[in-house]
Design a protein around this nucleic acid. Structure first.
Lengths: 209, 209
DNA sequence: AATTCCGGAGAACAGTTGTTAACTGCATGG
DNA sequence: CCATGCAGTTAACAACTGTTCTCCGGAATT
């Protein structure tokens, strides 16, 4: 069904992507609420008015960036939490996956961390929606896991929330640690593993007393 | 030693505080990196140039706001984590304390959550420093607690980090929930208590196997 | 081949920004 | 009581902002 879209729409999507890329780049050293439309178009090398052909405002562009940054992450999340293998190696796999993702998409991760509580309401809401979807997906995976089988929905959501928070916190820590400083990175990974281990421990004893 | 400071310095501190208050107010609907100096002085009713008598830039003002928002919080943190009373009532006390603090200083909490990963480096660093101090203080308290007595320093820091993250996450959730919606607030409090309970459970079994 | 559509350019708008300089009036210290 | 210090003012600057309207050229449609 992918009808090789005409050279017209192709060009449009190309400049649209250029705008998104330039914005993401500029957002590494400022927040969305201070990002100017002219600033973005200037970086792309296009007239200011061209911006309006793609986005109503910078807030609108921000929402599009949320999709780009989080939209494709669902599959990865699910495979991370899915119960396969020993607990210890699952933890190790999860931490490595987070580190890899941060290294491959640092600007995206920074954008989400920054705008999650940022000054632009529609963007905050878009991020909140996506994170809620993540949490729900983690909850669904946890329900399958024998360790947390038969838990109440409140308990499952509590645990899912804890895992998502942990993931974001760890990603943010990796982001703040330059990739060259292998020693510090190792310390962050170690911290994350210990925390996941403690949560996993609390999980196993949750209904045992 | 508090030599009732002259009517001159008193006036200065008064407008300085007015600038801080106005800025905090404006920052409820935007982030620091988009806060203009003229915007602040206009809100106070003072000439733009007067700003320079107090701060070098808005980033400088932001750092001052960090002190105001977090500087006085250390004592509270310590008493919250300190081991006194049953585990369950300690958890309840901590959650109530967070809720109360958010209700009394919502703008401060919002500011910290927003600028922790915000676009202004000096402010990010100031917040990071304060949070590191908090984490260290929590670690020191945990070392006294019989439940985590004899733990390694890495383990203690791991747990302290977990508690501080938890505290911030809960505060942010309270902030997003309007104070009138008692039902939703109760759900947030319930979630926070369950999470603390699970962490506490993992804590008790940490070195038991 | 003729016509419509539309992404982008260009120019102009009123309003905003940070920063500079030189000033005024009043509390302060000698 | 007089001279100094200094918080705050006024005026002006070049640079920047979002938004509107008009136009152009080439792809898409008929």
């Amino acid at each position: 069904m992918s009808h090789t879209l005409g050279i017209r729409q192709a060009q449009k999507q190309k400049t649209r992507q250029a705008l998104l890329d330039a914005a993401l780049r500029l957002l590494e050293e400022q927040s969305l609420s201070s990002l100017g439309l002219r600033e973005v178009t200037r970086a792309v090398g296009v007239a200011p008015t061209a911006f309006y052909r793609h986005f109503r405002s910078t807030a609108d562009l921000g929402v599009a960036l949320v999709e780009e940054a989080l939209g494709s992450l669902h599959a990865m999340i699910r495979t991370t939490v899915s119960p396969s293998g020993d607990s210890e190696e699952r933890i190790d796999r999860a931490v490595k996956l987070i580190a890899r993702h941060v290294d491959e998409h640092p600007a995206h991760v920074r954008f989400i961390a920054r705008e999650r509580h940022g000054g632009v309401q529609p963007v905050r809401e878009a991020i909140g929606d996506q994170l809620a979807r993540f949490t729900e997906e983690v909850r669904a995976e946890l329900a399958k896991d024998p360790v947390s089988a038969g838990w109440s929905d409140e308990d499952l959501m509590m645990l899912a929330h804890l895992y998502v928070d942990q993931m974001l916190s760890t990603a943010s820590l990796f982001l703040e640690t330059p990739a060259e400083d292998g020693e510090e990175r190792a310390r962050v990974a170690d911290l994350a593993r210990r925390q996941l281990r403690l949560i996993s421990l609390g999980r196993r004893h949750w209904n045992a007393e």
